[in-house]
Amino acid sequence: MAADKVDPIHQFHIVKLIPINVGGYDLSFTNSALFMVATVLVASAFLYLSTSSRSLIPGRLQSVSEMGYEFVSNMLRDAAGTQGMKFFPFVFSLFMFVLVANLLGLFPYFFTVTSHIIVTFGLAALVIGTVVVYGFTKHGLGFLKLFVPHGVPVFLLPLVVLIEVISFVSRPVSLSVRLFANMLAGHITLKVFSGFVVSLSALGAVGVAGSVLPLAMAVALTALELLVAFLQAYVFAVLTCMYLNDALHPGH
C-alpha cells in the first residue's frame, strides 16, 4: 500500500523484538532498545578502537576521539570551572550517547532513539536528578540559594523566587522536549519529502521529472539534519554543564 510507504510517523513505531513482561510491566526488548544497544556499541567501539594505538601523533580516527574529549572537557571547564571536572565522564557519556544516537537515526530504516520523548526525558531527568542530589549533598539547604538571586529588593523577592522555581522545574522539560522535537520534526520532514519522491515517481515520466525537486530537497535536508544531530547533542551537553554549574555554585 502506497500510504504505508509515505506515512511519516511509521518510523517512530516501537516494535517488540523479544517480549518481556515483568509484574504487569512491558519491558520488552524493542527496536528502540536495539538501537540504544547499537548506539552504545558504535560509540564505545569507535572510542575504544580509535585510541587503541595510543599514538603520540594521532591518526585521523584518534584525533576525532581526542577532539570530542577535549571539546566536552573545554565546554565543561568553561561552564562549571575545574570543580565541574568530576562530572566529566557523565557529560562526555551524555554527549557521545546523544550524538551517536542522532547520527545513527539519519541512516534510512534506522530507528532514532532520541525521537522518543521518554528517552530524552529520561536523560534530562538524570541530569536534573544529578544536579539536585549533588546540590543538596554538597551545600545542604544552601543549595536553595539558587532560587534567591543576590541584589533583589525584598518586596520583589517572592515573585523572583517563584520565577526561579518555575524556571528550574521547567528545565528537564525544556531539555528533553528540545532534543525530542528537533529529532522528530527533522525526521518527519525528511520522510515527507522522500515520500513526495516516491509518490511522484509513481505517476510516470512527468512525475519522475518532477520528483527531482523534492529529491534535491531531501538531500539538502539530510545535510541540515546532520548539522542538527550534532548541534542538539552539543546543546544538550552545554545545558547539562550549565545546570551542573548551578549545583556546584548555587549562589548566582
Binding site: 516501537i14 519491558l27 532498545a33 540504544m36 544497544v37 552504545v40 522518543h116 528517552v119 529520561g122 536523560l123
Partner: peptide, 16 residues
C-alpha cells in the same frame, strides 16, 4: 512503551 524504553535506556546508558 515507556517502562521498556526507560529500562533499556538505563541499562545501555549505565553500561556506556
Amino acid at each position: 512503551t515507556f517502562p521498556s524504553q526507560l529500562l533499556w535506556l538505563a541499562i545501555t546508558f549505565g553500561l556506556f
